[in-house]
Amino acid sequence: MSRPIVRRRVTSGLLYVGMAATTVFFLFPLLWVLSMSLKSPAELFQSPPALLPQAWAWDNYTTVLQQSPIIRNTLNSLVITAGTMVLSVALATVSAYVVSRMDFKGSKVYERAILACQMISPVILVVALYPVLVKLSLLNSYASLILVYVAVTVPFLIWFMRGFMETIPRELDEAAMLDGCSRFGLFVRIIVPAARSAIVSAAVLTAVMSWSQFVIPFIMLDNSDLFPISLGVLNLQSTGGATTLQYVAAGSVISIVPVVVIFIVFQRWILGALTDGAVKG
């Protein structure tokens, strides 16, 4: 065998080793939690720990589903996520279109403000809003919660959608205008269909961001009936004693499944969204 071929094989071998190590590093914590969620309390404290449960205790899941409000939390998260997704994507599409196609004095200021918004921690926003929300009795309200979710997701989406709008040829706009199309007609009939792949990406990203959101509901909700999944699982951890670790693990798995499924199904769009944005900067 010639030397280049040997070197090629050695490099491929090293790449396989590297990929295997990376996969284990990132998947092992998740698999371990999955394993813990199927163990009996005795097994959780057995030393040394066994990789797999002896008898798979699926009833840990039944217990969590029946005795904790996790189903309710999941439904709550779905409602909040869906509301945020619709409003945020609609708002971002319109705003990105305006910024990319209309010439107006304030457009630079608007764009800079959008970038600056992304540097502000949600903790600061909700801390400052809290006294006002108390005064207006807007705590424990999905309407105000969703509006805050929309506000914190929309700057990134506008930035991302704007990048995509630039790739839609302006000739399309001009042809439509020549045909006497109004701005609104142009937006609905030309821009939205042309941007549909970006809209899907934006929707998936918003869903992932809203599902993960924690500090906003943590401060804006104190009625536990309204808690989304992130607060629900945290409650499971803080209310249970040491003997309920298997339930905490099961709750974590339940909360991860939807987002991981969405993520794997839509991976192409997410990767596309983030990569387009990054390369264009």
Binding site: L15, T23, F26, P29, S212, I262
Partner: peptide
């Protein structure tokens, strides 16, 4: 090489999981 998609997905999954749940998972670890 086979398996690059699996590795990519494994890394990206860590990013999709809610931060609170990541805290809880590492507490268990």
């Amino acid at each position: 090489l086979v398996g690059s998609v699996v590795t990519r997905t494994a890394v990206m999954t860590a990013w999709a999981i809610p931060g609170v749940i990541i805290g809880i998972i590492w507490r268990l670890l």
